[in-house]
Nucleic acid binder design. Structure first.
Lengths: 236, 236
DNA sequence: AAGTGGTCTAGACCACTTG
DNA sequence: AAGTGGTCTAGACCACTTG
């Protein structure tokens, strides 16, 4: 049996993630200092520091010279610059992911949708509706129209096992995407799904994706404004 | 005159950035190894390593154990989500632009703001509040905290004549920025300024900007959700 | 075999915040 | 004054890729 070597800083990161995830270390609570971790895990300060530093970069912790390191306020964040698999993002935050498949069918596209998907009005497209959960909290409703010419077996998938993004990436690799980001009030049905009141603002991303062969899908991603945000880091 | 201490790893980062930017080190070219930088800059390997590591996280470099560190391929990443001058955007839509300057003063920064601007709590920072109009409709409230060490004459400007972004671009050219995008409900004062009801969702962008010398400003941009959206076009 | 990056140690000095 | 995080050193052993 092969023994996989786990880096020490990684063990410490997992320890801290687990404490935060389980709620033992709530938001704003102080986490052990570099010196305390050094002693507790019998590592050098540089190693303890690396664990704290990486979690800070990931947004789980906030550090302040002289006063200490604290658990950050929890808000899910995803990037505007790359298209990530939401399940991966959630796992990276040290949280549980699961999905609920609300719908998966063939629909006739209206004129607008036809244009967006490069189809003719009245053509069939595939449609999926999936609700993504972070630790049992609904975090994003994904409604997606898919070009059936490029992804013929879309309806045969189980999107509680694999995310639509993951599946599409394997079938029709992403070459291009556009985003439109808006703040909206969602309708009653969506609010109920997301477990928010009707007056709660939502962040809505409309994303069109292309692969070499053409338009693959149009996704409408709706998230509660108080639980989700988008981020980007640009270097010029 | 106070001498600002520049960290050694930061000097090395700037050196590498400059080489890439100027085209002396093109895409895929090999950059100096940790050991070479160690010698060249008379630092320990850990310090040279930190410079390479951070640039790798920023996506400028790619590392491969055993073979070396290389200049990454630029996806259109910098041009994807570029930072535009709102006055230009509005003019390009064929509309009239004007601005109202609501506030322009020096403020004491609290702890959070101090961290974000690389200042000490209690230090002074400059603050501006400007309301941007598109054809007499308020389209964005810009509240901005500015590092006074880098932009000494900020308070002497007239932001109905030049946007803060335009002015800062000329004084401290942009090298880096981060964004956080959220859907929020704004407070009464902001709703009144934006001429919307209190239940109207707003798109809020928090943008931190850097120039070579460090953090330049933190801008909080709030726009009515029904009148403003963000877009991006990614090519992979 | 020589060079690369990945991890790690046991120290050090510093600036900063807190009691 | 004691504790915190920020930077830095001069070593070490390792896994990996290359000539």
């Amino acid at each position: 049996m092969t023994q996989v070597k786990i880096a020490k800083y990684s063990v410490i990161k997992q320890y801290i993630c687990q404490k935060i995830e389980s709620g033992q270390w709530p938001e704003h609570s102080k986490v052990p200092s570099e010196n305390e971790l050094t002693e507790q895990f019998s590592v050098s300060r540089m190693t303890a520091r690396r664990a704290l530093q990486e979690l800070t970069e990931q947004g789980l912790l906030v550090r302040s010279q002289g006063s200490g390191t604290f658990v950050a306020t929890f808000k899910s964040q995803s990037s505007l610059l790359e298209i990530r698999n939401i399940a991966d993002e959630i796992h990276e935050r040290g949280h549980e992911y699961h999905a609920q498949q609300l719908d998966l069918k063939s629909v006739e596209v209206n004129e607008e949708m036809a244009i967006l998907l490069s189809l003719k009005a009245g053509d069939k497209a595939f449609f999926s509706s999936v609700l993504h959960f972070e630790n049992d909290t609904p975090i994003q409703l994904e409604q997606r129209f898919v070009n059936p010419k490029l992804v013929a077996e879309y309806l045969q998938q189980d999107f509680t096992e694999i995310t639509p993004h993951e599946y599409l990436s394997s079938e029709a690799p992403l070459t291009e995407a556009t985003h439109e980001v808006e703040a909206i009030l969602a309708n009653v049905d969506i609010c109920n799904l997301l477990n928010i009141t009707e007056s709660a603002p939502c962040l809505q991303v409309k994303r069109r994706t292309w692969s070499r062969q053409g338009v693959v899908s149009l996704a409408i991603l709706t998230s509660p404004g108080n639980k989700y945000r988008l981020g980007s880091h640009l270097v010029f």
